[in-house]
């Protein structure tokens, strides 16, 4: 890291000289945007305008609106009135908010755990497989990863269809006593998965885990390739078990990879919208809301309550930024920003 930094410093000195005198004929105008002192700002300006206008300003506006009443009148352009913390008070008093928060957190906990465990196992497997076999598994996983969220949600609606879905058909094959013991029912013909939150979220978890384990697997594999095989040989000579090798060598060495993957997974799973909106069939099943669907339902169903929707979005954003803080600190600590 230190070598890169000094090389950069040296090179930008060189660049400054080249910009000042090498061009010879036309001395650089000190105020020109091409002056190396201002050039980086000039290059950044368009991106900053886009990021500022489309991400930062809306963020500020969202916070502002969460303290205002924003209904149909205000959407048409009338100035919005402040309601203080009224919106927050309303959502905290609503059962729907607590149900949505609970759904969001429980779903994220289960989906993130499953994704990380399955993804890591597949990553470890890929590392052990021969070249042909591992290419096959990687390509298969890529298919799952590449499928658009909307397509995957619709496919899972079809797989779990009450009449002709594969899932009910397979579940019917289970011996009755086993099915009864595991799920409390033996006849799955015509079972509807998308009316109650529990079965709905079961399908959602399967759908999301199916799509997100490949990223974890491929990332873990990339990490594993960077670990020297001498370490493993030494451990094996000492008679260590696979379980012990994982926790004593692999995990500590890949800790940075795992923490980034954990944070990214939490971020993705906390705000899952497309799949839930599709599986739940819009905003009709209110007790299956998570925070993003709840915010959307308040803001975009008639009558629109955008102030309340913003307050919910602020809560979601705060939770995510708290998690992000860990990620940013991790990146900064690794001097990735140099």
């Amino acid at each position: 890291m230190t070598t890169t930094t000094s090389r950069q410093a040296h090179a930008s000195d060189g660049g400054r000289k080249a910009g000042g005198s090498k061009r010879g004929l036309r001395p650089a105008n000190p105020r020109s945007a091409l002056n190396p002192r201002y050039l980086p700002y000039g290059l950044l300006l368009p991106a900053m305008i886009v990021i500022g206008g489309l991400l930062l300003y809306p963020l500020v506006q969202m916070i502002q609106m969460s303290f205002q009443k924003v209904g149909l009148r205000e959407i048409r352009g009338y100035p919005a009135e402040s309601v203080g913390v009224g919106n927050y008070q309303k959502i905290v008093e609503s059962d729907l908010f607590w149900a949505a928060l609970r759904n969001t957190v429980i779903f994220a906990l289960i989906a993130v755990t499953l994704t990380l465990v399955i993804g890591t196992l597949v990553g470890l497997l890929l590392n052990k497989l021969g070249k042909k076999m591992s290419t096959l598994v990687v390509i298969g996983s890529m298919l799952a990863w590449a499928t658009p969220a909307i397509s995957s949600a619709i496919i899972f609606r079809w797989l779990f269809d009450d009449r002709n879905g594969v899932a009910n058909w397979v579940l019917n094959l289970l011996p009755d006593f086993l099915s009864q013991a595991l799920f409390g029912r033996s006849d799955w013909s015509g079972f509807v998965w998308f009316l109650e939150p529990a079965p709905l979220y079961t399908v959602l978890i399967l759908c999301v885990v199916w799509q997100s384990f490949p990223f974890i697997a491929v990332s873990v594999l990339a990490g594993l390739k960077s670990i020297s095989s001498a370490l493993y040989e030494a451990a094996r000579v000492d008679g260590a078990t696979a379980w012990r090798i994982f926790w004593k060598i692999t995990f500590p060495l890949l800790r940075p990879v795992f923490s980034v993957l954990l944070v990214l997974s939490i971020i993705w799973d906390f705000k899952v919208f497309t799949q839930l909106h599709t599986l739940a069939g819009g905003v009709a099943t209110r007790d299956a809301f998570n925070l993003s669907l709840y915010s959307y339902a308040e803001a975009f169903s008639a009558p629109p309550k955008m102030g309340i929707g913003s307050a919910i979005a602020v809560v979601l954003t705060l939770i995510l930024l708290a998690v992000t803080f860990v990620y940013v600190r991790q990146m900064v600590r690794q001097e990735e920003l140099r």
């Binding site: 705000k271 954003t317 992000t324």
Partner: peptide
């Protein structure tokens, strides 16, 4: 890094 983490759905109302 930080703006990548802000959920796009949360910005939906303002946008």
């Amino acid at each position: 890094l930080i703006v990548q983490m802000v959920p796009a759905e949360a910005l939906g109302i303002s946008l």
